[in-house]
Write a protein that binds this DNA or RNA. Structure first.
Length: 481
RNA sequence: GGUUCCGUAGCUCAGUUGGAUAGAGCAACAGCCUUCUAAGCUGUGGGUCGAGCGUUCGAGUCGCUCCGGAAUCACCA
């Protein structure tokens, strides 16, 4: 039993390209692990509370004039995200004024009126103030409706969703219990820490001096809840490499608290997605938005399809669906073929290729295969000799057969290594080999019935393997393109 | 400064447990559609695998040192 946590969004802004990498990796890993014979639970922890959420709420209260997704026609997560950016903008203005009065930039930020107000708002939320909690619920519901659309567009799913607003309390109790047992230390100001200096790490805060929870507290609680829910053998966290330290501390802390199962925790750490001009910054609005990107990819696929004169005899809705599959295929393959550990640069201007080592190349190979098989059924050319065991394959066919033969063990390997890239590169290689075979030899035009039957069989198996391979990556295989 | 990760062709990336002349794609150039989908296929040019030392019959791959880049070491999440 493997639990895979991925996505883990904050509810104060829409998903961006970094989340896309996370979601695609997590979803693909879940499919690879289950294909390798594991029972897999896909989970998501929603970071639905905290000061960053209050920032959006406060900005909406102050400047929102009662706007809703319905009244503005804006997707809920974008509307909330706009107020988050607005808050940061107004805060910067206030801070600049104060800095002009002689404060350091940090002091100015901390002492700005908006910052004080937003802290007040968080306190009110934690105290359970009715109006505040009501607003929080409503704005979060807008965000969830928006996320659902993005998740659906990406094609990712979850079996179980956890909310930080539920789990942080469990974490706090856990810390208090553990403190009594003597695993932790309490400082004079009342804050609670774990001392990991024996493991070459520092002391780490688990509860603030005012008794409130921090990020780590919440993750401790979530882990314990999950173990009691599923008794997993392994728990994979798909989280960016910026949190390497956090997950080291998390596992060690749980072990120190006596939870042996924490040995099964594994941080699947992946690199950042950067833009040509540097890191993406949510609070400045400098991000590649997930919804925009998906739309652009689809638009590019549509444009390309039109230029090539494909799909002209299809209905608008069929054409739209295929172009969506291709656009997303390009995006998904682009991200998944790369070693997850590496940082990657995404250049929106140059966009993503549809030729060469790409998703559409593999999808195209699949569409060709489907086309041949369909024609074989229609013309009854497939009624050839069933027994083709004595056919001696040519070198191109042998190359394809060798690859097909590798596929089952590759799935196991990809699951062990947690590497969608292995599957992605295999799919490309198989598609390339098959295209060479397809180019050099005729399948349906072959005179010898047994050879024709053999080639049709090879074609059918290749089609199934490509389809399965793409499926493992969460990429759809169009029948035609 | 400590820790972790990355460095392979102009660009984006592969490189299986160490194995022979280091592979793709993009970009450039030159070809292939009366024949199963040309989003394809073929060819040309392009590399001191960051540098050095070591282990080995053999190193892009393993070890050490250095150089360059990223992340992190918060009473942020």
């Amino acid at each position: 039993m493997i639990v895979i946590e991925y996505s883990s969004p904050n509810t104060n802004k829409p998903l961006h390209l970094g989340h896309i990498r996370n979601n695609l990796l997590g979803f693909s890993l879940s499919r690879i692990c289950s294909a390798a014979g594991n029972r897999v639970i896909r989970t998501n922890i929603v970071n639905d509370r905290g000061i960053h959420i209050c920032k959006s709420m406060l900005a909406w209260q102050m400047y929102g004039n009662g706007e809703t997704p319905e009244s503005t026609g804006t997707k809920g997560d974008h509307l909330v995200g706009d107020y988050y950016v607005l808050f940061e903008q107004k805060l910067r203005e206030q801070a600049e004024q104060l800095a002009g009065g002689g404060m350091t930039p940090d002091e100015a930020r901390e002492n700005a009126p908006l910052m004080k107000e937003v802290r007040q708002l968080l306190l009110k939320w934690e105290a359970g103030d009715t109006d505040t909690v009501e607003l929080w619920r409503e704005m979060n519901s807008w965000v969830y409706a928006g996320f659902d659309i993005t998740y659906k567009a990406l094609g990712v799913e979850f079996d179980k969703i956890y909310y930080e607003s539920d789990t942080y309390k469990v974490g706090r109790e856990l810390v208090i219990k553990s403190l009594k047992k003597g695993d932790l230390v309490r400082k004079d100001d009342g804050s609670v820490w774990i001392d990991l200096t024996a493991d070459n790490l520092d002391q780490k805060l688990l509860l603030r001096s005012d008794g409130t929870a921090v990020y780590m507290t919440q993750d401790l609680g979530t882990a314990v809840i999950r173990y009691s829910d599923y008794h997993f053998d392994r728990h994979i966290y798909v989280v960016g490499n910026e949190q390497n330290y956090h997950f080291q501390v998390l596992a060690l802390t749980l072990l120190r608290m006596g939870y042996r199962w924490a040995e099964g925790l594994h941080h699947f750490s992946y690199g950042m997605v950067e833009l040509p001009e540097g890191k993406m910054k949510s609070r400045e609005g400098k991000v590649v938005d997930a919804d925009d990107l998906i739309e652009e990819m689809t638009a590019t696929a549509t444009e390309m399809s039109r230029e090539l004169g494909k799909l002209e005899d299809y209905s608008d809705s069929e054409r739209e669906n295929i172009c969506r599959q291709i656009g997303l295929g390009a995006l998904k393959y682009f991200i998944l073929k790369v070693d997850p550990k590496k940082n990657m640069t995404f250049n929106p201007a140059e966009s993503i290729d549809f030729n060469g080592n790409t998703g559409p190349f593999i999808q195209y190979t699949y569409a060709r295969i489907r086309s041949v098989l369909k024609k074989a059924e229609e013309t009854e050319a497939g009624e050839g000799e069933r027994d083709c065991t004595d056919v001696i394959p040519n070198p191109k066919e042998i190359s394809v057969i060798k690859l097909l033969n590798d596929f089952p063990s590759l799935i196991v390997e990809a699951a062990e290594e947690l590497s969608p890239a292995l599957i992605a590169n295999f799919c490309y290689e198989l598609a390339r080999e098959f295209n060479q075979f397809y180019h050099d030899y005729s399948i349906l035009g072959e005179e010898d019935k047994r050879i024709r039957g053999f080639r049709l069989k090879l074609t059918a198996v290749t089609g199934r393997v490509i389809e399965k391979g793409l499926w493992l990556l969460g990429i759809e295989a169009p029948e035609r393109m």
